[in-house]
Structure formats: C-alpha cells, structure tokens
Amino acid sequence: MVALTDLPKPDQKTPPTALELKLRRKARINTAIRYSVLIVVGLIMVYPLVWMIGASFKTNAEMFSSPSFWPKEPTIQGFIDGWKTSTPYTFGHFFLNSLWIIIPKVIGTAISCTLVAYGFARFEFPGKKILFVTVIATLLLPNVVTRIPQYLLFRDIGWLDSFLPLWVPSALAGDAFFVFMVIQFLRAIPRDMEEAARVDGANTLQTLVYIVVPMLAPAIISVCLFQFMWTMNDFLGPLIYISSVEKYPVSLALKLSIDTTEAFAWNQILAMSVLTLLPSLTVFFLAQKYFIEGISTGGVKG
C-alpha cells in the first residue's frame, strides 16, 4: 500500500509520471477510507467524555432533554453548587484527602517496587524462583479475592478508618504489576554499568541509587503515573476502609452527592467528575514522554 508521504510532492519542478499519478490516486482513496473509519470509531469512543464535559455546563433541567453535548444556556452553577457539596466540607477538602492518600502511596510504591525489582532482576538467592512465582501469582489474582482477609487483618491491627490500609501494602511492594514492570525494564538494561560502578567502588545501595535508578527513571515514572491514576480512581479501597466523611477522597465524595440528595443534581455530579479527571489528565500529559519510554521496554540504549 502506498502512503501519500512516500510520493514526491506535486509542486516539484519535474511533472509527475503516469505511475506517480496512479499511485497518488490510489493513496488518496486509501487514506480517505482509513481516516473515515478511524474518525467514526474514535468519535464513538470519545463521545461520552465530550458529552460529560458539555453536560457539566448545562442546567439540571436541560440535561436529559437534548442529546446534544453543546449546552444551550451554558452555566457554571453546577460547579459552584457541586464544590460546596452537601457536607460541611467543600470539594477541595476531598481533593486534599485524595492527595494525602496518593502522594505517600506513590512514593512508597516507587521505592518499594524498585528495591524488590532490583533484587529479583540482579541477585541470585535461594528460593528466588518460588518467590518470583508468588509475585506473578498475586498479579494474576483478582484484587477482590483478598479484600476480605485484608479487611480482617487491618481491622485486628486497628487501622480501620485511617489511610494506613491504603498506604502500607503499596509501600511494601504489594502491587505485583509494578514490580513485574520494573523487573522487565531492568532485564533489558545491560549489567555492565553496574559492574563498572562496583569496580569504581560503589556498594550495592550506591549502585542502585546512583546508577540503576537514573537508568530506570522512565519505568519508575510510569509506575508513579499508573499508581497516581489508579489511586485517584480507586473507589473500592477507600469505600471499605474509610468510614468518616471527613477522610473521604474524591471518588467517595462523588458518590456521596448521589446518596444524600433526593433529586440527583446530575449537573453537580458531572461538574465534579470533570474536575476529578483533571489531575490525572494533567499528570499524564506532563509525564507522557517518559511514560511512553517506560512502557515500551525496548527503549534502552546500551
């Protein structure tokens, strides 16, 4: 298949050959078909999101009366009312709660996953195979299965209604997926640099901090990004462990407005949903460059 970009530009001085004209016509038709399909499918995928953003500027009455996403009388009343919430706290308070859950969790994940992955990828020790299989097994295990025993455990320790049950498992490399991701990335990095560092006199920890971590940066950034987005969107975790409204993160706070209002103020809910999306989107676009490098494991230059 010929792509338009493979052919010389038509404004060049020599007239196009007959073959060139034929190929160009073919390429145009091909391109038109491909782009039409992509646009249609893309629109179907993205429409709910676009509708939500549009709807957050609608009045509650208009919401279900027209399928169009463009509000007839745009208003930010939804944002104002939604921000106040039906609780003594503003939505900002819940945002801070979310951050207070996310930031220690992300830091803990990054540190613990790097340490564990470094151990698995670079050292030989008795029982390594069994331990690694265990890590992969937890990766395959649905999260929900462990919820009840975990709940009982944290209840007996007395950590209910605190952020500890959300922080601690991650800080102990409980997220097998991230460990696995970093291990795969590390396997693609040659060991020579670490050996050079050892010859230069670095001990294991210095090698990790000065040599391995900088080389792992794209993978670690991806880990942080995933953890940020997933924690931001996590609903079940906070729902189970956190009972006082004061400590609710945004994911729970959104549901709160559904529960407590008699007639659902959909515009408020949607407005707050839009706000909730913003941090994840911002962080994603800021870190996009590293993120792509991080998930395509081959991107390491030796």
Binding site: P190, D192, M193, E195, A196, V199, P214, M215, A217, K301
Partner: peptide, 12 residues
Amino acid sequence: AMVFQNYALYPH
C-alpha cells in the same frame, strides 16, 4: 580499574 567491551559508561 576495568575497561569494558561496550564501554559501560553511565548513560545519565
């Protein structure tokens, strides 16, 4: 001190 086949310079 050691010199490696693929240089093993610290890339960062």
